[in-house]
Amino acid sequence: MSDIFTYLNQKEVIDSIVLIGSMALFFVGLFGLLSQKHIIKIFISISIMEISIFLLFVGSTFVKGYTAPILGDGFEKFVGMNDPIPHAMILTAIVIGMAVFALGMSFAIEYYKLTGITDIDKMREMRR
């Protein structure tokens, strides 16, 4: 049992877990995007794909044993800390992503008020 723990604690193994896990989460979202018909299900699938990208960005620069990039008690210099750049990028991307989702949902609500359709296969205004 302790062999498994020490194997999983290796640096390369943690990197591989992050990569494979976020790839699998991305494919779960892609499956939902291609197979579901309701507009809210489509938005949920896209948000799952978005979360997988966030996890890949933050997780791929994580080094075991390093601390968060914040000076606190007992820390004097910025050494042995994780990379702050992905944190800053993902921080803003989460807030912007939420606002854009709200914009998409408002379009869906208005479209439903006008036509009464939530199934994306029946949205045929742009087709000839």
Binding site: I4, F5, Y7, L8, N9, Q10, V13, I14, I17, V18, G21, S22, A24, L25, V28, G29, F31, G32, S35, Q36, K41, I44, S45, I48, I51, K64
Partner: peptide, 22 residues
Amino acid sequence: MIGIVILGSFIAIIIVAFASIV
């Protein structure tokens, strides 16, 4: 210890995401 926590969290997230889609 940290490896098994990361692995378990990823498995839980993927299961919940799949349940949420189907």
